[in-house]
Nucleic acid binder design. Structure first.
Lengths: 200, 200
DNA sequence: CCTACCGATCGGTAGG
DNA sequence: CCTACCGATCGGTAGG
């Protein structure tokens, strides 16, 4: 059995993610976090250097999850259309399996110091570049329509994906597979070339 | 000439919107807001009842802007496809002309007390219902494909629209008209029926 | 709109 | 991980 009286640094980071996601970084005090873990606020400083340190740790987890998801999607698929669907499915999985870290990553980066905020922006840019590349390749090979702007289209797809965290409920009317299919279908229709629509 | 030594309640609310949008409600102190207006934090209480009162005022402005935009869009257009484009153009205008209120409306509602948060949720729901109705009418009249789920499609369109605030810059490569056209085009392609694509 | 102030809470430290 | 505490800042008030 695992101990229920001692907290690891990981426990602290995970709880911090939950509170940051729900109340925001500024809306969460070290005493709030201590209470969540059954200890005093001052006791947290044996696990972490400070509050900012916690935000950095949570946000880095979020960034790593998206990066790993994108790499896996590219590794398992070759055609741009298939890669895009894998990117979509991977993104939805990351969002729904790690909601707290994702919410913090997406919404609380402004509370980071300049250096770490720059790192988050860089991670987000790299992830977006993956989407753009896939869309660009799709235009080249004919999966997507020739006039598609890969940059703008990537922004639109990511807008839909990042918003999932805001409205989707696993108890809701559609399950995760349906959600992925609906997003994939919507974006595919928006981007695919007329010929491609008969090839699927 | 307008006075530059006295602030109205409107000035206070507007400045609050800017700071809430940039640093969040919890990340903004009454002293921060006073400094922004050239007075002390304690002096704000002659204009407003308290900090929460300010958030309510800012968020209500955001809600009213979207409501008015939707009404105008429906009043000036009859066909579902035209109404959707008007809704998109109106939404983009609201976001870009009132960025602070919109950001606060979209991102800071969690800091409202239960009653006012419920009012925000209701306003958002009503606004979303407008989109759903238009999409439903579009399916009925043949503007949009028959298998379209108006509920999900409305969520996707609004995801793209609400994200604009996060990435678009008026100094960027595309101007506002192009932005509206690109969003309208992307969503139209995703939703329109094959016959409708030749009727446009 | 300022002066002067309140109690509460903040992030964090020293020492065990 | 707790006790005991620090200076700073918080939202807000009384009185002018």
């Amino acid at each position: 059995m695992t101990s229920d009286t001692r907290n690891s640094r990981d426990d602290v980071i995970e709880a911090a993610g939950r509170l940051f996601a729900e109340h925001g970084y500024e809306g969460t005090s070290m005493r709030d976090l201590g209470r969540e873990l059954g200890l005093l606020g001052s006791s947290l400083y044996s696990h972490v250097d400070g509050k900012q340190d916690l935000l950095v740790a949570v946000v880095e987890r979020g960034a790593a999850l998206f990066t790993a998801s994108a790499e896996a999607a590219l590794a398992s698929h070759v055609s741009p259309a298939a890669r895009l669907e894998a990117l979509i499915a991977g993104h939805v999985d990351v969002v729904l399996d790690h909601r707290a870290e994702v919410r913090t990553f997406l919404n609380e980066a402004r509370s980071l110091d300049h250096r770490h905020r720059a790192a988050v922006v860089a991670a987000r840019d790299a992830y977006e570049q993956t989407f753009r590349s896939v869309l660009r390749d799709g235009v080249t090979c004919g999966d997507f329509e020739a006039t598609l702007d890969p940059k703008l289209a990537a922004t639109f797809v990511l807008s839909i994906l990042n918003a999932v965290e805001r409205w989707y409920s696993e108890e809701g009317p559609i399950d995760r597979t349906q959600l992925v299919d609906e997003i994939a279908r919507f974006t595919r229709r928006a981007m695919q070339s007329p010929t491609g629509s008969f090839a699927g």
